[in-house]
Design a protein around this nucleic acid. Structure first.
Lengths: 201, 201
DNA sequence: GCATTAATGGAACTGGAGTCCCTTTATGCC
DNA sequence: GGCATAAAGGGACTCCAGTTCCATTAATGC
């Protein structure tokens, strides 16, 4: 019973191949989008044998899941402004900028599409967002301590409420992702939190 | 220069074929999801020639776009309860029920994935949501007239704010889509609207 | 260093998705 | 009802994504 390829000797060439393939996959996704992504093209861009890509990743969703795992490790530093609204606004602007960026936005669209197709990719995506949300949740907890929002407020729920409308625009409604939208998201989440909507129980 | 196939004699057999293919596509999507959907399988289920499906739709995203166009025509009736929160809650429950339903939920996931892959499908999806949002916007306008929310409130924005967190859960975070989530969405949107967050300008 | 063998790379092979071409069916119009 | 032809159906064909096999390269442990 052999282990997964790449797990016994993960250093040196194996690591270089993985980095090259993930970078190439990111480029290809941002360029052609999810639809026109075949593993042979990724292999060519990465200057790596086709066989290697098929052996180690096997399918487009699996490759996207690995790309996601890689991105999850690079978490963005959270800012602290001293006010809930300003913290949430910083988060909304960060998310907005990410989704509007041609490369990053295409990447996120592709990853969500891949997650909608494949259960394993979906699990990787959920872990990714769990990590991102956990990173920003403390700003809500601090707001509770300052008395800005009622005790018992579900911090993760507030953070999700900020991102959700931006993703909805990106994926479903197609409305513009402008600065005004980011501002509305942050204000809406902050007002709802102040009103005790996110108090759990 | 021949017209699109099916546009010159759209009645009789052509219409029956379209209905059979769209129904089969819906079944196949709900069953295998977006990934394992090939046009040959759809043709078999619809008891229609492979050639016909390839000629008239040509690709998976195009077929999904047509399915979407078909669904957009069947709009759901909006309820009127006399209070903004209750109206929004009815909307949130409707959306939640749709997304949780095994067949419908899978269909929506697949459609959003297809839209993320293909520009034309994305346009069809945007039209679909524009129609759905327009259907529910009047309940916000009525709330403005009743003085529940400030004048100048962007009705479409409020309706989007109700759905967005539910879609975010379905597609991104993977958190449960329970009744409590629907209640939170409706309350959050109502509170933010009352506070004037969605006043445009 | 050197041996062991994990992992990569190239090339030939295969299966099925998508295309092409021609025949059959039946719609729309008189 | 009958004609012209739009659209569907069947089957052969093509092409390339994905697999398999084996030779080559280079990580890891001593």
């Amino acid at each position: 019973m052999p282990a997964e390829p790449g797990s016994v000797r993960p250093g040196g060439r194996t690591a270089r191949v993985r980095a090259a393939v993930l970078a190439a996959a990111g480029d290809a996704l941002a360029e052609h989008g999810m639809a026109g992504l075949d593993l042979a093209d990724v292999a060519r861009r990465a200057d790596v044998g086709r066989t290697t890509v098929y052996r180690r990743w096997g399918s487009v969703p699996a490759l996207v899941a690995d790309l996601l795992e890689d991105m999850a490790e690079q978490s963005l530093p959270r800012v602290e402004t001293g006010s809930l609204l300003e913290d949430l606004l910083a988060n909304a602007r960060l998310v907005r900028r990410t989704l509007v960026d041609p490369r990053q936005g295409a990447l996120f669209k592709a990853m969500i599409a891949a997650a909608a197709c494949d259960e394993r990719t979906a699990a990787a995506l959920h872990r990714f967002y769990a990590a991102r949300i956990a990173e920003w949740a403390p700003c809500v907890d601090q707001a509770v301590q300052r008395g800005e929002v009622p005790p018992g407020t579900d911090a993760a729920e507030v953070v999700r409420a900020v991102s959700a409308p931006l993703y909805y625009r990106l994926l479903a409604s197609g409305d513009p992702l402008d600065e005004a939208a980011a501002l509305r998201c942050a204000r809406a989440a902050a007002e709802a939190a102040r009103a005790g909507v996110f108090v759990s129980g």
